[in-house]
Design a protein around this nucleic acid. Structure first.
Lengths: 362, 362
DNA sequence: TGCTGCACCAAAACCGGTTTAGTGGTGTTT
DNA sequence: AAACACCACTAAACCGGTTTTGGTGCAGCA
């Protein structure tokens, strides 16, 4: 057995043709007769030849990879349900297309910028996904100036020449808050994600606007970090308020579930004493007790769409790709939201396990 | 602005040297004087030159990527906490080393084999991670015959020439079961993952062996699928048994949490009426109410170790890499396990539904 | 018969690097 | 002074493909 895999030259020699002919035959281009084409493919089959991805990449200066640069800690992948789903969606499209995904975790914004430049200069990726948009995000400008194909998740605030994958969530948030208001809640809190993220700011704004539209004052707000620990802490802060909210809208399901546990451990019943709404519709959420009301987004579909657009941009470099609008996010009312009980806002202490159960008004 | 990024030739021209000299200068090899070296690096800096990853890859026939082929549905990424953590661990090592991870989801075992062959033939990856080992797994043999560097997660049953990353979990499982036994449980069930996976079979075996060592009969066993829905269903089946278990050991935290909710919704208290143990120590688990007792594994560290070994194999191809043994998994006793209460097995009216639960003999 | 046009394919250039072989010049040795 | 080793560097080959160029043989046509 000779060392290394068969190359195009081996096939050419075996079939008695030139390298170019083999290339034409393999790519279904004109330039070889049908007879020689089958002969070439036959001897390629015998040798078990498959064209080298690297060689091919060099020729057409494509790296066959897309980049995803995340300014977060690697551990985040395990807690934020968005990214695994997003990545899965991306892979489901690009894998069959022969592309791969290059993940890169970076610490600071400075390194982030350097990383994009690096990826572009070294020709390591054919395009990038831009997620976690910030308020005044410089990445769209940077990427267009680098000439690197890119797509953003949601449309940035400022000017951006990049196509965007949009999933409208404002409506779902208004639905969720309205749902709480209709149930009789008057003091509706919000535990959001880091305010530097555009989506966090948007969600907070929608929450606030809906309350005001209903003639209600803003409820208490706490900025947290999307983690379970952060959600638990924020919830404790909320429940310690003298005028405790009767409902909390959380920035993601993870914080919401942690918040529910905090409430439980204080002897509060959900939803009678506290209504809870999450965001994401994680797999677990429907299986909580009570099942978590939440806002369902389509991270998987988002990944699919983003990858599809980026692939299209590769095949037609000149054409400006249009924004893709996914079906808007949806509010899912489940068991964790309900009318506030008579005891709501009163506060009550309890040892876990020996709790008093008060009657609730339906 | 000229089209395309600067190449090594541009730098060579600018510095007035040959391509080879630039290459030497960039790779810190002897062959150029210190003076010319700085001159070359200076003009490279001016031009903003970075060597092309593709060109470099072609020369040394490296693709700069590792492969991870998963015979699961892409959606799984969002539910199984292992893989996001594992991937994060891998990325934390290979990113700085200039490698990337190529994910590939495949449907059947046949496609799986074809995918490995494809990856190898097209030179798309420099090595692969083999996860989800099965009972009689043919992949180690396939990969060694392909000459593709690889590493397995845990040591396969059969012969394998591949190095393995091992994290012993048997001890932790025995600890968990013993803990339950010490608390007074006599009927300890197990809801495991798909039996075709080696780790599922191992865990089941450990559970069973520990019970027998204590002179107890095997508790009821249900094979499930690691999903929340599957865990909930399995739990319902367990609670429907005429001799209901007083404790359940789940194959992962996701199923355990879903199981806890099922128990709650039937009016059972945890741990008084049912003790629950998970597996993984997901982020949420410590924030449940009660906090979930579980077995902590180090998926992140596993990814780090696997990537490190694979990188080492690249730099020293001849050397047979040794197995890496991570610190063993650890049983974490939290609030979801406790002595079976007086009411355990007695049955009680549930809130949702009107289900009668038959008494079981302890 | 001679010329054109086409189909088919070989040869070579190219992508952007790495690596090897070879060259000219300096310094050391005898 | 001749022989030799060594250094710094260039030129060229190479990795494995794609693409361009160019040449051959044959059919069609005047």
């Amino acid at each position: 057995m000779r060392t290394g895999r068969p190359t195009i030259k081996d096939v050419a020699d075996a079939a008695g043709v030139s390298k170019g002919a083999v290339s034409f035959a393999f790519n279904g281009r004109p330039g070889v007769s049908a007879a020689t084409r089958v002969r070439i493919l036959a001897s390629a089959g015998e040798l078990g030849y498959r064209p080298s991805a690297t060689g091919r990449a060099l020729s057409n200066s494509r790296s066959q990879a897309f980049g995803l640069v995340l300014a977060r800690k690697p551990e985040m992948l395990r807690s934020d349900p968005f990214f695994p789903s997003f990545i899965a969606g991306v892979e489901s499209v690009i894998g069959p297309a022969g592309q791969s995904l290059m993940l890169r975790f970076v610490g600071s914004a400075a390194i982030e910028k350097a990383t994009y430049i690096e990826l572009s200069r070294t020709n390591s990726v054919d395009g990038v996904f831009v997620t976690d948009l910030r308020m005044r995000d410089r990445r769209p400008g940077l990427l267009t100036s680098l000439g690197l194909p890119a797509i953003t998740l949601n449309r940035p605030r400022g000017r951006s020449d990049l196509p965007a994958i949009c999933q409208e969530a404002g409506r779902a948030i208004r639905d969720a808050v309205s749902h709480l208001i209709d149930l009789g809640h008057r003091r509706i809190a919000h535990v959001g994600g880091p305010g530097s993220y555009l989506h966090s700011a948007d969600r907070r704004q929608q929450w606030s606007a809906t309350l005001r539209a209903a003639g209600l004052p803003d409820g208490p707000f706490v900025e947290s970090d999307f983690s379970a620990a952060g959600g638990a802490e924020a919830t404790r802060a909320m429940l310690d308020l003298t005028e405790r909210p009767s409902a909390i809208l959380f920035g993601n399901d993870l914080m919401a579930v942690a918040g529910m546990s905090v409430a439980h451990s204080r002897g509060l019943r959900i939803p009678a004493d506290l209504s809870v709404v999450g965001f994401d519709d994680a797999e677990l959420s429907g299986h909580m007790h009570p099942p978590l009301s939440t806002i369902r987004t389509d991270a998987f579909g988002c990944g699919r769409a983003a990858a599809t657009v980026l692939l299209a941009e590769l095949s037609e470099p000149r054409v400006q790709q249009a924004d893709v609008h996914l079906p808007p996010a949806e509010f899912i009312a489940r068991g964790s939201t309900g009318p506030p009980g008579v005891a709501a806002g009163k506060g009550r202490r309890s040892v876990s396990g020996i709790r008093q159960i008060a009657p609730s008004t339906p």
